[in-house]
Computed example of a mutant assay.
Amino acid sequence: MARRLREETGNQKLRPRLDADLGKPSTQRLLTAMVLPLKMLLSPNISVISFLTAVGYGFMYILYTTFPQTFLCIYAWEPKNIGLAYLGTAVGNLLGMILGGGISDAIVKRRAKNRQAKPENRLIPMIFFWPLLFCGTYIAAAYTTHSASEMAATCVLRSLVGGLVPLFSNKLYSRFDVGWAFSLLTLIALALAPVPFLFYWYGERLREKFDRSFLGR
C-alpha cells in the first residue's frame, strides 16, 4: 500500500505505520521502545486484564511452592513421591493451552463469519475459565501495532507476582491451614470473575479512548 501511494503521489516520504520511526535517531527509538510498555500499562484493558493474568499466575506459583509442605506434612507422602503432585498442574496447564486456544480460535472464526469480529471475542473463554486461560492472544489482537510492548507490560506484572508469591505462600498456609487458604484463593477468584465479562462488553470503547489519549491514533 505504501509503495503504491509513493508511486501515485510522488511523495517518497510515505512509509507504513510500523516504519514511521525509522527516520528518528537510534537513541530516541530505543527510549521510545523502553518507555512504551510502561505507557501501555495506562490502558485499562492491558493493566486490568494483565493483572487478572498475573493473579492466575500467582495461584499457580502458590501451588508450586506449597506442594512439599502440604503433601509431606499433612498427607505424609514420601519425599520421593512429591514430584507426582505436580502432574495435576502440568496436565491442567496443557489442557488449558490446547483447549483454551482451540475454543478461542473457533469463537473468533465464527464471530468473523457473522461480521462480529473484534479482539474482545478472545475474552469469551476467560469469562468461564479465567484462572486457567491467560490473555496473551487478546492483548496481541487488540493492539497489533504495539503487540511486543503490550506483551512486555504483561510479563512485567506476571513476573512481579511470580517472584513475590513464594515469599508468603507457605506463611499463608501455616496461618490459615490448607482448607481456609484455598477458600481465600477461591473468594479472590470469584471476586475477579466478572472482569473478563465487563471487558468483553466495554473493552472496545476503552481501547478507542486510550488510543486517542495516549497513542494519538
Results as ranks from 00 to 15, higher is better:
A142Q: 09
C135S: 15
T145Q: 13
T145H: 15
C135K: 14
W130V: 09
L123T: 06
G162W: 00
I124A: 06
S149W: 08
A142R: 04
L167P: 11
I139S: 06
P125R: 05
L164K: 01
F134L: 15
L133S: 05
T137A: 15
A152M: 13
T154R: 04
A142L: 12
R158Y: 00
E150D: 04
C135Y: 09
P131T: 09
F134M: 12
Y143F: 07
K118P: 08
C155H: 03
V165N: 02
I127P: 10
V165R: 00
I127S: 04
T137L: 12
T154N: 09
S149T: 12
R122W: 07
K118S: 12
P125V: 11
H146W: 08
R122E: 12
M151A: 01
V165T: 01
L164W: 01
L157W: 00
S159I: 05
M151W: 03
Y138H: 08
F129V: 14
V165I: 00
G162F: 00
L157P: 02
K118E: 13
W130M: 05
I139N: 13
A153E: 01
T154H: 04
L167F: 12
V161G: 01
P166L: 08
P125K: 09
V161R: 00
G162M: 00
L167K: 07
L157D: 02
E150R: 04
V165F: 01
G162L: 07
P125M: 09
S147V: 11
V161E: 00
N121F: 03
L133M: 04
K118V: 13
M151Q: 03
A152G: 06
L160G: 13
L157Y: 00
T145S: 15
E120T: 14
P131S: 09
L132H: 11
S159P: 01
S147N: 09
F134Q: 15
L167D: 10
K118T: 07
T154D: 03
P119I: 12
S159G: 08
F134S: 14
G136I: 11
Y138R: 06
A141F: 13
P166K: 11
R158P: 03
S159E: 03
G136D: 13
V165G: 01
T154K: 03
F128Y: 14
R122N: 07
L164T: 12
L132F: 15
V156Q: 07
V161D: 00
V165Y: 01
P166H: 07
G163N: 07
A140G: 06
C135I: 13
I127R: 02
E120K: 04
L133A: 10
M151F: 06
E120N: 05
A140Y: 05
P166R: 01
E120C: 05
A141K: 04
P119V: 15
F128T: 14
P131I: 07
A142H: 10
S159L: 11
